[in-house]
């Protein structure tokens, strides 16, 4: 299995988004990413995996194999699902150290910063935090 780095993956997302010069294109792409995200198995859709956001529900699970963290996630809102899909694309399969140091600058570059605003309107900020918490946990268990 081949692993590309966080920055390479971020660059790919930024490149994809740069193809669109209007908001419609960007959001249609994001919605499309949301639709393509593999739905989370029902067994993971439980209370303990929910990331508390005010409006949409986000579920996140993590698995640790061969020194790398693998994330799976889902949401009941399609745009958040698209955002979630990008976070997984960037962070899943990386080492705990890399997840922890990821700056997630690409979100700003693709013009989706509003989704990181502290408005309690979605769980994106909490989701990144939770992904990093998993990284801390796996790092401390396995180091």
């Amino acid at each position: 299995m081949q692993f590309t780095s966080i920055s390479e993956r971020e660059k790919e997302i930024v490149d994809n988004f740069s193809l669109f010069d209007d908001w419609e294109g960007k959001y249609e792409y994001l919605i499309d990413l949301g639709k393509k995200l593999e739905p989370l198995d029902d067994k993971y859709r439980k209370e303990e995996n929910i990331i508390k956001g005010c409006q949409s529900t986000v579920w996140l699970v993590a698995d640790y194999r061969d020194g790398r963290i693998f994330f799976k996630a889902d949401s009941d809102a399609i745009i958040v699902r698209g955002l979630v899909s990008m976070l997984i694309e960037v962070l899943s399969g990386q080492t705990p150290e890399d997840v922890l140091s990821a700056k997630m600058e690409f979100i700003k570059e693709i013009g989706m910063m509003q989704h990181l605003a502290q408005t309690r309107s979605n769980g994106l900020v909490s989701m990144i935090k939770q992904m990093k918490n998993y990284a801390i946990a796996f790092h401390s268990i396995h180091s």
Binding site: W23, Y27, Q55, A77, I78, I79, S121
Partner: peptide
């Protein structure tokens, strides 16, 4: 999901609550 509606309305300059 109402949030999806709210986000896409905001993109069109419309403020609603969801």
């Amino acid at each position: 999901h109402p949030q999806d509606i709210g986000v896409l309305l905001d993109q069109q300059g419309i403020a609603v609550r969801t």
